[in-house]
Simulated scan of single mutants.
Amino acid sequence: MAVINLEYYSEVLAMNRNVKIIYPEASKVENFTEKEIPVLYLLHGMTGNENSWLQRSGIERLIRHTNLAIVMPSTDLGFYVNTTYGMNYFDAIALELPKVIHNFFPNLSTKREKNFIAGLSMGGYGAFRLALGTDKFSYAASLSGVLTFNGLESRFDENAAYWQGIFGSIEQFKNSDNEILALAERKTEYCPKLYAWCGKQDALFAGNEFAAAELKKLNYDLTYETSDGIHEWYYWTKKIEQVLEWLPINYVKEERKI
């Protein structure tokens, strides 16, 4: 297994960007030069970047025996959307980045059924936003994600420079493609399988409960789980392993020796 830092020029963002990639060992891949390696795009939350999962979760240890590549990009604080201030993170990550990755790593699959996406908090929002807004991902997972802004509308006024810079006004946000539930209602094909978890003591728990109920009404194939937990890495580190078990890959757990 190799952990690779790739610096590339993003035409969409007109700047150099860094992305971290975990690339599986040849011994884990049958017919390594020909086989299409499945790919998980793994998204950080607010205050994080492309290094967050590597530094905080031990993700490289979890998949060291598994044929899976992981791609970890950064959206800065841009919520993985095309912001109103002109930084088009959605286009850069959903449309441009897969082409960049495949150019450097042609063994990675471009097939929808072998491309997955997951994230935490802001990244949980991003995972659903990118999966529902494209036809590129067959599975999408959210851990403590911001899946709805119901009950959080006041944030658009309390920190207007930031939130309106990302989404515009609350009126512009409602029913736009940036509203997860509105986007989910409009999507009619290439619907991804969804997974969501949120801790019961998390400030986002009520929003996750509401979003899960609405997604089920829309007949999405959603696995929704809750347990005691707050908004922090202790829980996300545990839950990302459940996401790996949920994905259609041959996930091989590391044998724990006492």
Score class of each variant (00 low, 15 high):
Ala206Val: 13
Glu7Met: 03
Ala161Met: 07
Ala118Val: 14
Glu232Ser: 12
Tyr195Thr: 05
Phe205Gly: 00
Thr47Lys: 12
Trp236Asp: 07
Leu43Gly: 10
Glu189Ala: 10
Leu95Gly: 00
Phe137Tyr: 15
Arg155Trp: 11
Pro248Trp: 02
Ala160Phe: 10
Leu244Val: 04
Lys239Asn: 04
Gln242Trp: 02
Tyr190Gly: 07
Gly58Lys: 07
Gly78Tyr: 06
Glu96Tyr: 04
Asn82Cys: 09
Leu120Asn: 11
Glu36Gly: 10
Asn88Cys: 00
Thr75Asp: 15
Phe116Tyr: 15
Asn5Pro: 01
Val243Asn: 05
Tyr9Arg: 14
Ala203Cys: 01
Arg56Val: 03
Cys198Trp: 03
Asp202Gln: 08
Asn115Pro: 05
Pro192Ala: 10
Asn5Gln: 14
Gly126Phe: 06
Tyr125Cys: 05
Leu43His: 06
Ala182Arg: 02
Pro24Gly: 01
Met15Arg: 14
Leu147Met: 11
Asn159Thr: 13
Glu96Val: 08
Leu62Ser: 09
Leu40Ile: 05
Ile101Ser: 04
His102Asn: 15
His44Cys: 12
Met15Ile: 08
Ala213Thr: 13
Asn115Arg: 15
Asn51His: 13
Met1Cys: 03
Ser27Asp: 09
Ile70His: 03
Leu132Gly: 06
Thr33Tyr: 11
Glu254Asn: 11
Gly58Tyr: 05
Lys239Trp: 03
Gly229Glu: 01
Ile37Ala: 05
Gly145His: 12
Tyr89Ser: 06
Gly58Asp: 05
Gly86His: 08
Tyr251Leu: 03
Ala206Arg: 08
Ile170Asp: 00
Arg186Gly: 13
Tyr235Asp: 10
Phe79Glu: 04
Leu132Glu: 04
Gly78Asn: 15
Glu245Lys: 15
Pro24Thr: 00
Ile93Lys: 08
Tyr190Ala: 15
Tyr80Gly: 12
Ala184Trp: 09
Leu120His: 09
Thr84Ser: 11
Lys253Tyr: 01
Leu194Ile: 03
Ile117Met: 04
Leu183Met: 14
Ser121Trp: 09
Ser144Ile: 12
Glu185Asn: 13
Phe105Thr: 11
Leu244Asp: 03
Asp157Arg: 02
Asn88Lys: 14
Tyr139Met: 02
Gln55Thr: 11
Glu158Gln: 14
Val39Asn: 10
Lys187Glu: 10
Tyr220Glu: 04
Lys111Pro: 00
